[in-house]
């Protein structure tokens, strides 16, 4: 059932992606930084707004299972990472999560979903990790799933699960900006030497 106030809120939620665009600057905003390495680090700093957003961090945990919500509280029901970053035998990620977001039938909100919905491996755990360390990890093929920088660009710019961050389903705030801007930032960061913030 919709109450009048709820409709108003729904209107605001519908408008929020536009507002969020403003939350992430494109590469042009950093053109005035003359030192290339500094500019590169600044670009990564901007990418960090996405990388450290709860939509991403909730499944990039350092230990244990995923977290939930903007306050990144423990997942309810309690779930564990499991050997394959896919939950426990008998209760995998896809016991509940499907290949798309699914709206709840009984209340507002949705259960998130996407193809290959699972946790990032522990080597890509970012919760509580500094942006500089995330940057070092993300460039390290031993810890980034054996990706080259070009692979990384592809991943950031076009991977569907990454893109889910901007289409997280009813009841969740999307990551700032858009995957397109995030891709452009990654491109510019690589092209400027993929420097890490200090």
């Amino acid at each position: 059932m919709k109450h009048l106030t709820v409709m108003l809120v729904a209107g605001l939620i519908a408008a929020s992606p536009v507002l969020a665009q403003d939350g992430l600057n494109g590469p042009d905003a950093f053109a005035n930084i003359t030192d290339q390495t500094e500019r590169s680090a600044a670009l990564f700093q901007e990418m960090g707004k996405v990388l450290t957003h709860p939509r991403c961090l909730n499944c990039h945990t350092v230990t244990g299972g995923p977290t939930q919500g903007d306050d990144m509280h423990a997942h309810e029901p309690p779930v564990v990472r499991g050997d394959a970053d896919f939950g426990a035998p008998g209760m995998n990620c896809n016991t509940c999560h499907g290949t798309t977001n699914v709206g709840f039938s009984t209340e507002k909100g949705s259960i998130p979903g996407h193809d290959s919905w699972m946790l990032a491996p522990v080597s890509m755990g970012w919760q509580g990790v500094s942006l500089g360390e995330i940057c070092a990890q993300i460039k390290d093929p031993a810890r980034n799933g054996d990706r080259t920088l070009e692979d990384l660009y592809e991943h950031h710019a076009h991977d569907g699960l990454v893109g889910w961050g901007w289409d997280p389903g009813e009841g969740r705030k999307p990551a700032p900006g858009s995957q397109e801007i995030f891709g452009q930032l990654t491109r510019a960061w690589i092209d400027t030497g993929a420097a890490c913030p200090g």
Partner: peptide, 12 residues
């Protein structure tokens, strides 16, 4: 019935 109730607009 769930969808129908969701679509109701009720002023209380």
């Amino acid at each position: 019935a769930m969808k129908g109730r969701e679509a109701l607009v009720v002023e209380w």
